[in-house]
Amino acid sequence: MSVETTLIRTLIAERFGGAIEELGFSHGVHAFAAPLDMVVELCRFLKEHPALRFDFLSDICGVDHYPEAPRYEAVYHLYSLPNKWRVRIKCRLGDPPRVPSVTGVWRTANWHEREAWDMYGIRFEGHPDLRRIYMWEGFEGFPQRKDFPLRGYKDKLNPFGAEGPPPTQPDLATKDIP
């Protein structure tokens, strides 16, 4: 175990206790599992701690673990420009998936989160502008979910699609969170 692994682990354990689960170090990335209400806090801590300084958000990625439960996952990849370290934060989400937005920590999260919303229907709470980014307005369903057929659903524009009507998804974007 290298010095950096020990340092990152110790600092996170000091700040968050046992809430953040350590997932090990593989292929140059330190992985952690965070509960959903701690993601923003953990990101801010990793970004702002003077010894860690994970100031660069590489990527936010949605994952669908269908038919496992909890079904969804949001994965964050952080990079520290001064230290050249990488961290992955994984956060399992239930159905319907919701997670607090990290747009307040990095502005770049804006489009990543819009993409995850568009493809997986992960609702990022507190996102300033959660619209679809790739699919057109009025598109129904979330195409990268595992239960969405590869060729889409059959309609007059898509004669080769799978049989069955497109699922009517509640448009969470327009609804207030209770």
Binding site: H27, D59, R88
Partner: peptide
């Protein structure tokens, strides 16, 4: 398993997760 690996593509960090 899972891997995130990034290279310096002409446009910037190109990563595959």
């Amino acid at each position: 398993g899972e891997v995130y690996s990034a290279i310096e593509a002409p446009k910037g960090e190109l990563g595959f997760y």
